[in-house]
């Protein structure tokens, strides 16, 4: 079984968000990049499936050379090989198109993405990819069991869990629950050394055009001062919420 894990390179969760080029681009200056947390859950699950399903695991990212550091980390975590499609990832459409083109050359059985990235937050790539490829698609995925080409999986729905069954090939949108936080693999020295021997291939981009263009970024307005209410006068809080904020 061949598994592809799509990895998005995102600003660390504590990053200050700033923009450049007259507010049309994210300012990467001084920003630390990490593997998108949802992708890390997916990658760990894929590494487990190397044993349980005798799978091979490829980690892929669409990005410039600066994203190779996180691909090396994926190799250290346990991916067998890594691929970088060389271009600046500007929107989900071109990213999904690039990945689709690669998947048309190499037929993967399972494509694991994160439910959404924590930067652009679109939750677009996995769905687009599944739509382009006409594969089955499960997002917000919290369990996945594959037996030959039978898939049993569940996803989080509003207020509960839904279980369903389908056939391979499939695209998954992973999230916490697929594996737990405590299951995440922290690369050890041996893993890091081995990662250096593993192949990291660079593929040329096919330069697809954008379909959603960020014209301008801006930050939310500064918040006014907090209104403090004395702990002994809680009735005042209720009054303010009722009559000033009008939310009760």
């Amino acid at each position: 079984m061949k598994i592809l894990v799509c990895i998005s390179n995102v600003p660390d969760t504590t990053s200050k968000i700033n923009f450049t080029d007259s507010d049309s681009k994210f300012d990467k200056n001084g920003v630390q990049f990490i593997i998108n947390p949802n992708d890390e859950f997916g990658l760990t699950k894929a590494v487990w499936m190397k044993e349980s399903n005798n799978a091979s695991v490829t980690a892929l990212t669409v990005g410039d050379i600066s994203s190779e550091a996180i691909l090396r980390k994926c190799l250290a975590i346990g991916a067998d090989n890594a691929i970088r499609i060389d271009c600046e990832a500007l929107d989900a459409y071109s990213v999904a198109k690039e990945i689709e083109a690669h998947c048309n050359e190499i037929n993967y059985d399972v494509i694991i993405c994160g439910r959404e990235s924590i930067d652009y937050n679109g939750g677009l790539v996995p769905g687009l990819l599944a739509g382009y490829l006409d594969y089955n698609f499960i997002t917000n995925c919290v369990s996945l069991d594959i037996n030959s080409d039978d898939v049993k999986c569940s996803r989080e729905i509003s207020g509960g869990i839904e279980t369903s069954e389908c056939k391979l090939p499939i695209v998954i949108g992973a999230q916490k629950g697929l594996v737990e936080e405590s299951d995440l693999i922290i690369p050890n020295m041996r893993g890091i050394m081995m990662a250096r021997q593993k192949p990291l291939e660079v593929i040329e981009s096919k330069d697809f055009s954008n379909q959603a263009v960020d014209k301008k970024f801006f930050k939310p307005e500064e918040k006014g001062e907090v209104k403090l209410i004395n702990a002994d006068e809680i009735d005042k809080l209720i009054d303010l919420l009722e009559n000033e904020a009008k939310v009760l």
């Binding site: 924590i118 937050n121 263009v213 014209k215 301008k216 970024f217 930050k219 939310p220």
Partner: peptide, 11 residues
């Protein structure tokens, strides 16, 4: 976007 730390005008 950016988990509510920013907005974008998108075409």
């Amino acid at each position: 976007c950016f988990t509510n730390k920013a907005f974008s005008s998108t075409e």
